[in-house]
């Protein structure tokens, strides 16, 4: 599979949020405002790319040779939480302005299934290093794109008249339904 098709696949047709249902909590939780959605998206992007590279190396050069593949889930979650901590420290020290914008979202990312999900999916599909990199970038772009579009729709929904019982999550889920329909039609493109 060539790199461009992996990129397109991970952004659109196999979007991690709308077709794989990963990262649902931030998708519904932090997507009230466009700005929050972008910050969340960027923090996820940093962590996903770094952790998928590191876990790829660990998986290939430590877990497979020593025959301990079954430890994958535990090792991966440890790597992700370590990376989140390191990113937080580095940002705090060298880029305080960025940290001020993203700081709130970083700790939440450890338990964000979008990160662990992407890493596990990449290691399941036997990508090599460059393919893993492209897949993780594509997935996080897809995540950011969907969460941003969703947030802007929800901002506009607030001014609409919605039946009382559908206010809040139900209408958000139905919006997501329509978006998922649109994204699933990208298959033929």
């Amino acid at each position: 599979m060539n790199l461009i098709s992996i990129l397109m696949l991970s952004i659109f047709t196999e979007n991690i949020v709308l077709t794989k249902f990963l990262g649902m909590c931030p998708f519904f939780g932090t997507s009230n405002k466009e700005k929050n959605a972008l910050s969340m998206g960027f923090s996820v992007m940093i962590v996903v790319v770094l952790s998928s590279l590191l876990t790829f190396l660990i998986y290939k050069y430590i877990l497979v040779p020593t025959n301990t593949v079954y430890l994958r889930t535990i090792i991966f979650i440890l790597v992700i939480s370590a990376i989140v901590q390191i990113v937080e420290i580095v940002l705090k020290k060298y880029y305080p302005i960025v940290y001020k914008n993203l700081g709130l979202y970083l700790p939440l990312i450890t338990t964000n299934c979008a990160v662990l999900g992407t890493v596990l999916l990449a290691s399941n599909s036997n990508y090599n290093l460059i393919e893993t990199l492209v897949f993780s970038i594509g997935s996080s772009i897809g995540f950011t794109l969907v969460i941003y579009v969703f947030a802007s729709i929800r901002e506009r929904l607030e001014h609409c008249q919605i039946p009382k019982n559908f206010k809040g999550y139900p209408i958000a889920l139905i919006t997501a339904f329509i978006m998922a329909l649109i994204f699933s039609r990208f298959i033929g493109v």
Binding site: L18, F21, I174, A180, L181, S184
Partner: peptide, 13 residues
């Protein structure tokens, strides 16, 4: 996949 959102939305309502 899309249907999942629809069913859950109506169930929550």
């Amino acid at each position: 996949g899309a249907g999942a959102f629809l069913v859950l939305g109506f169930l929550i309502a």
